[in-house]
Every structure is written in structure tokens, then in C-alpha cells.
Design a protein around this nucleic acid. Structure first.
Lengths: 248, 248
DNA sequence: TATGATTTGTACGTATGTATC
DNA sequence: AGATACATACGTACAAATCAT
């Protein structure tokens, strides 16, 4: 019987969370990979069931366990896929060992006047038309991200149609006469997942998303794509390629 | 008096969280930038105080509000500092507009045999001695990150001593005859903050951290620094510099 | 400086709803 | 259908932090 100390300056739920975390790493629950029920844990630590629930809620936040209503509390351990980001990353190309087959599912597309932040990023006149694509993306058959991308509506008016035909962004750009393009900027931040991302990526409430804001440009330096991507943080890590050539 | 609907298939706390979020964006609490007390909110929505607390806990997770015991619940909105990461980023150099004066505080340092993952990253023999530095870092007088860095213990045995003397990493490397170094790899992931990071960066429980795992090398391609950094995700965003020169 | 009022945090108990097996 | 397990919601009491007086 484990014990917890009252009036120690550390709340019971935190002491219990700590002890459960240690018990997990000691392999105590390796058999069926799940915790005992809340009532059993409450008895084990001699506290109320709700105190155990507070501890489990905390461990859920940390990503240590995952709770399923009616089934139980499961120990969570998943390797993160390595998702490459670089000046010349091409997803259609084979990538050295990192991440497997990718797929994009087109959720929605529109042709509309650009919001201010989009026209700025694409260096277009305010309110110029832009094509907007919303996709949900998988890698190794796992949902990993959703993205919203914008393209110059004058230059790429039927971008969405070609999407179905060509499949890859690289191929579509080629069809417009753009043989090459490069990533010129990427901004990365982390947030709690919003409701759209929770749904699209089938995440649990409280999940974390990695957000990237990126601009790609053609070889004249003219922006051709602006995008916001939201990755399931517990499924991937971003692997930044800083280039291999030495430069002065 | 706002109302919530029971037995609607949506829990009361979620309905309340949604209504509070909307009220915030409507500017309803702009006066003192904080929510009414829990009891007042409970009366407003005709529910128990704990139901309100569940709603507020959810909003805290989203980063919409921040709770301070004995004071109240405050509306959270802070601009993220833009933190540059690139092949040749130098923190002692002036950086274009992005982020202000930086400072590192040395928390701890040791000289010890390298753990396996460190010797691998630095391309040293297993168990070779390494200098380990633990720092807490500020930018614009705000706590932004903590870091653990490792250096070859043979090559840089008195690294920690020189730290006090020189202040900047670049200057220390120069003192060892390394005039230049570059970032060769960066891996970025997001997690819930662990207890050490919570404490070092004075974060609230449930906060998110951005983790970077980085290797710097000298101009011969020999690794000179391996580091793990943990950033307060609500205070910064990482701005990846992909370089400006065009390369084949 | 001290004290009381206010506000959030912890912990208990109880009842009922919902999902799974 | 029944048993089990987690989810929601109510209530009560007291602790801890903050703030005004």
C-alpha cells in the first residue's frame, strides 16, 4: 500500500500523479498496459476517487496516459515521426529513412479575395484573388497534420482542379512552368489544439499542436505559396535541414 | 443572465467555456482584463462553482485565461517573441528587429562521462568526458528557455570557467581557436512542460514547451556542441532562417 | 503590522449519466 | 441486460494566497 502525506505542502493529487508516473516507468503495469480503475487506485492511496481523477487528469495532460470512457486508462507511448522541413524539402521525393508514404486529402477549396495577412505574405495587392486549399495530411497511414494554403488567384486560378489531376504540389507548379521553388521562411509555434484541428486529426481535448507558417517562392524570389500547417505534436517532430553546402 | 441547456449532449462546463470565450472576444471584460469570480460566474450560469471551475480549467488549457490563486482569473494575450534559428544564427550579434537583449544564467555545470545519446551526437567514444552546462535564458528581460548543453570534455575542459569570463558561446569558441561554427541539425517537438521547466521558467501547470535538440559543428564538420533547449511556448515562436543565397 | 474579506485550490461525499464489454 | 468504468454535476468544508483596511 503506497502512502501519501497530507499537509506536506504538496497536494495529494500531485503526489499520486508522481507515484503513478514512477510506477509506470518501473513497468508495474506492463501486463495489460493500463492502470487499475479509479476506485482501486483510490483505495491504494487511501484517498477519494476524485483525488485520483485529478492525478490522472494531470498525467493525461503530460501525455503519460490516455483515458477512454467505459474502458480504462491506458499508458501512452508513441514514437514521434520525423518530419523534415528544409529549404528544398520535397514530399514527393523519397526521404532518407525518416518518414514513410504521405497522402493529402483535399477537404475544401475556394477562390476569394485575399485577407490582409495573405496578400502581404504573397506580396499581392490587398484584396487580390487567392486560391485557398484546406487539406488533411497523413504519413505512414497516420493523421499528422491539417493545412491551409494560399496561392495567387491570377497566376494559379485552376490550382484546385489540377490538384486532383497531378496529386503533388511540385507537379502542379511544374504544370504552370515553375520548375523549382524553395522554402524562404518558416515560423514554428506550439498551441493547444483548436476544435477544428482536434476533429480533423482525431485528437483528445487538451492535445498540443505544432503550427508552422511557411512561404515558398519560385527561383525569382516571387512567393508562390503561403501556408499554415497544424501538426499533432504527439505524433511528429520537425527535423530542420539547415543545408549541407558550406557558405561564406 | 446567460443560460445553459442540460441534457443537450454537451456538458455544462463546455457550454460555459464556449460562452466565456465568446464573451471575452466580444470585449465584455476589457475593463480590468479579468473574469468575474467563480461564485459570480456560477450564479450567472445557474450552476455549481465547480462546474465553472471545470470550464475555466479548459480555458486555461487553451491558453485563453490564466488563473492566480487569491487574485482572480485573467485574460491571457501575449505576443510571442520571434526567436531566430538558423545555420549561422549568433545570439550576440544584433538581430534585425526580432528579439531584444538576451541573457544566460548558468545554473549548474559538471564534467562527467557522456551518456550514450551525447557521445553519439558529439561523435565521441562512449563514456568520453563531457562538460555539461545548464542555463536559464532570458530575452527582453523575459524568461524564455532553459537549456542543457554538452561539449567535448577533452577539447573544452575548462569551458565552464571561461563561461563567466567571456559571456558568449561564440567568444569562448574563439578562445579555443574556433573562429566559426554552424548549426548542422535542429529537431523541434512540443510537449507539456515537465516540473523542472515549469519551475525554471515560472510557468503554470499544463503549460506547453517547445523542445529543440541541436548540434553545432566547427568548419571541419566536427561537432562542438550538442544541446537540448526547452522554450516557453506561449512566449516565443521559432523563426527558421533557411538562408538567402541560392544554391544548386 | 495585523486582521478580516475575498478569491482560488484541495479534498471529501453523493448521485446520476454515458460508454464499453 | 447487467456489470464495470469513466464523466458530469451537485454540495460542503477548509486551506492558501492576496488585498484592502
Amino acid at each position: 500500500m503506497d502512502n501519501v502525506e497530507r499537509r506536506s505542502g504538496i497536494s495529494l493529487w500531485r503526489q499520486i500523479a508522481d507515484q503513478i508516473r514512477i510506477a509506470i516507468s518501473n513497468g508495474e503495469f506492463d501486463g495489460n498496459n493500463m492502470l487499475p480503475g479509479e476506485i482501486a487506485l483510490a483505495k491504494r492511496f487511501s484517498v477519494n476517487r476524485h483525488t485520483v481523477r485529478s492525478a490522472i487528469a494531470s498525467l493525461t495532460q503530460e501525455g503519460v496516459v490516455r483515458v477512454e470512457q467505459g474502458r480504462g486508462t491506458f499508458i501512452e507511448r508513441r514514437e514521434r515521426l520525423q518530419y523534415p522541413i528544409g529549404r528544398r524539402t520535397r514530399f514527393s521525393e523519397g526521404l532518407a529513412g525518416k518518414i514513410g508514404p504521405r497522402d493529402r486529402h483535399l477537404k475544401n477549396h475556394t477562390l476569394q479575395p485575399a485577407p490582409a495577412f495573405v496578400s502581404t505574405a504573397l506580396q499581392l495587392a490587398p484584396g487580390a484573388p487567392v486560391v485557398q486549399l484546406e487539406t488533411v495530411n497523413t504519413a505512414d497511414d497516420q493523421l499528422v497534420s491539417r493545412a491551409i494554403s494560399w496561392f495567387d488567384g491570377e497566376r494559379f486560378s485552376d490550382f484546385a482542379d489540377r490538384y486532383v489531376e497531378y496529386g503533388s504540389i511540385t507537379a502542379i507548379f511544374k504544370s504552370y512552368g515553375i520548375d523549382d521553388y524553395i522554402r524562404v521562411s518558416t515560423r514554428i509555434s506550439a498551441h493547444h489544439a483548436d476544435s477544428t484541428t482536434l476533429e480533423d486529426l482525431q485528437l483528445s481535448p487538451g492535445a498540443i499542436m505544432l503550427r508552422t507558417e511557411a512561404i515558398n517562392a519560385d527561383m525569382n524570389g516571387r512567393p508562390v505559396e503561403y501556408s499554415h500547417s497544424y501538426f499533432a505534436a504527439d505524433r511528429i517532430e520537425l527535423d530542420i535541414d539547415h543545408g549541407t553546402a558550406l557558405r561564406a
